[in-house]
Simulated assay, not measured.
Amino acid sequence: MKWSNLFGHAKCAVIGMIHVKALPGSPLCRMKMSQIIEEACKEARIYRDTGLDGVMVENMHDIPYSLSPGPEVTACMTSVCAAVRSVCPSIPVGVQVLAAANREALAVALASGAHFIRAEGFVFSHVADEGLVNACAGELLRYRQNVGAEDVLILTDIKKKHSSHAITSDVSVAETARAAEFFLSDGLVLTGISTGVGADPQELAEVSRATSLPVLVGSGVTAENARGYLAASGLIVGSHFKEGGVWSGPLSSERVDHFMTQMRRLRT
């Protein structure tokens, strides 16, 4: 399986989020690219030195997000990811480009040597705060084949956060998971309703029963509730690692270290 080849046999792999500072062209951009890259590498070093299993780079500060980010976003994210890869040569590095810029994320991964992407809107349409996001599995996997990025894993959100799923209200999360597996997803990401809100452990159990794919929890994981997610293949942690538990704050090495100490106990 691609997941185990990448993450080995790590039980409930922990992936730390690197929320890249606002990139050139976005309304909140206040830094030069050299500063943006250095900030990302600083966080990568903390994650590496505290023993995380992987990191993921995301343009989280590029609010408000666009469904058609410009070429400068792909170029800048490639530079950031390449720098993070050099800091973390021995652990998997992933990338997500907001919003739902999955082809761009694959291009970034291919050019920078990243190992996986997180994709929105892989199966079924939904209404996100950026607008209507349509399913992309067919086009995305053909693009991956065409550019020779078959080794890049595509981890796909199902019933993703910050979205209305009224148009697919008759499709359960388990059915969505089965559809993603049928459409050749490499792994599933389960979330709460918004950033920092935990996923439902019952939904985690339901999705895990419905599919043979690795299932990751992608929001709201904390040192206090991690025990309830141990059945997951991985935990994507962002907000909890920041000062005060706020996603936009600076990364706290103490919070990361405390979490990983807790996880080592839980894993054994």
Results as ranks from 00 to 15, higher is better:
residue 12 C to H: 12
residue 15 I to M: 10
residue 19 H to D: 10
residue 21 K to A: 06
residue 22 A to P: 04
residue 25 G to T: 10
residue 28 L to N: 12
residue 30 R to D: 06
residue 32 K to A: 13
residue 33 M to F: 00
residue 33 M to P: 00
residue 33 M to Y: 03
residue 34 S to P: 05
residue 34 S to E: 15
residue 36 I to K: 01
residue 38 E to N: 14
residue 38 E to D: 14
residue 41 C to V: 14
residue 42 K to R: 15
residue 44 A to N: 06
residue 49 D to R: 02
residue 54 G to M: 04
residue 54 G to N: 05
residue 57 V to K: 01
residue 58 E to K: 00
residue 59 N to D: 07
residue 60 M to A: 08
residue 69 P to H: 01
residue 74 T to M: 14
residue 75 A to H: 12
residue 76 C to N: 13
residue 80 V to R: 04
residue 81 C to S: 13
residue 83 A to F: 14
residue 85 R to N: 09
residue 86 S to D: 13
residue 88 C to A: 09
residue 90 S to F: 13
residue 99 A to Q: 05
residue 100 A to I: 14
residue 101 A to T: 09
residue 103 R to N: 14
residue 104 E to N: 01
residue 107 A to I: 15
residue 112 S to E: 11
residue 113 G to P: 02
residue 113 G to A: 09
residue 113 G to S: 10
residue 113 G to R: 05
residue 114 A to E: 10
residue 121 G to D: 04
residue 124 F to D: 14
residue 125 S to N: 15
residue 129 D to E: 13
residue 131 G to R: 04
residue 131 G to K: 05
residue 134 N to C: 15
residue 139 E to D: 15
residue 142 R to N: 14
residue 144 R to V: 07
residue 144 R to M: 09
residue 145 Q to K: 15
residue 149 A to E: 03
residue 152 V to F: 07
residue 156 T to K: 04
residue 156 T to S: 07
residue 156 T to M: 01
residue 158 I to E: 02
residue 161 K to R: 13
residue 163 S to L: 01
residue 165 H to Y: 04
residue 167 I to E: 13
residue 167 I to H: 10
residue 168 T to N: 12
residue 170 D to G: 09
residue 173 V to N: 06
residue 174 A to W: 05
residue 187 G to W: 04
residue 187 G to S: 02
residue 188 L to Q: 03
residue 192 G to F: 06
residue 201 P to I: 01
residue 202 Q to D: 13
residue 203 E to T: 12
residue 204 L to Y: 06
residue 205 A to W: 02
residue 206 E to G: 09
residue 208 S to C: 08
residue 209 R to H: 04
residue 210 A to C: 08
residue 213 L to A: 06
residue 214 P to R: 02
residue 216 L to C: 10
residue 218 G to W: 01
residue 222 T to V: 04
residue 223 A to M: 08
residue 224 E to N: 10
residue 224 E to L: 07
residue 225 N to Y: 07
residue 228 G to H: 15
residue 232 A to E: 04
residue 233 S to F: 02
residue 240 H to I: 00
residue 240 H to T: 02
residue 242 K to H: 09
residue 248 S to I: 00
residue 249 G to I: 00
residue 250 P to R: 13
residue 258 H to M: 11
residue 259 F to N: 03
residue 260 M to A: 00
residue 261 T to K: 15
residue 263 M to T: 00
residue 263 M to E: 02
residue 263 M to W: 06
residue 265 R to P: 00
residue 266 L to Q: 05
residue 266 L to M: 09
